[in-house]
Design a binder for these strands. Structure first.
Length: 107
DNA sequence: AAGGTGACCGGCC
DNA sequence: TGGCCGGCCACCT
């Protein structure tokens, strides 16, 4: 199933469980393109077209809501995460190691 | 076809 | 984790 790079990212993002988050690099690794983490972010940017993609569950490796800037509101992303039981303070995810979830590696 | 761009990551101080 | 720099790769104009 050779879909576009975007589709792959979306597939991984959709697999993120509720109350869990992952990093761009993790997704990139899952896709086999560990060095193209930036592409993941780019794909997420296009995720605005998909409503099935929980982009709010994708943060950078530091657990910072790097992409919150791209959401509609200023704290929409944080609200969504908190709604799932994730504590977010100052654009930073608390207990990042606890809520962190690594996507299934699809080689 | 070439160049610019980006919601990043890892290494070093 | 704070800051800076280089690499990396697909998408857009």
């Amino acid at each position: 199933m050779e879909e576009n790079f975007f589709e792959r990212v979306y597939t991984i993002a959709k697999q993120i469980p509720i109350g869990r988050v992952t990093s761009y690099g993790a997704i990139a690794r899952a896709l086999g393109t560990a060095r193209s983490a930036r592409m993941v972010g780019w794909a997420m940017n296009a995720s605005h077209n998909r409503d099935d993609v929980p982009a709010h569950r994708v943060v950078n490796r530091k657990g910072l809501l790097s992409g919150k800037h791209h959401f509609e509101g200023t704290n929409l992303m944080q609200q969504l995460l908190e709604n799932e039981g994730i504590q977010v303070v100052d654009n930073q995810i608390m207990d990042f190691d606890k809520v962190y979830w690594e996507p299934k590696i699809t080689v």
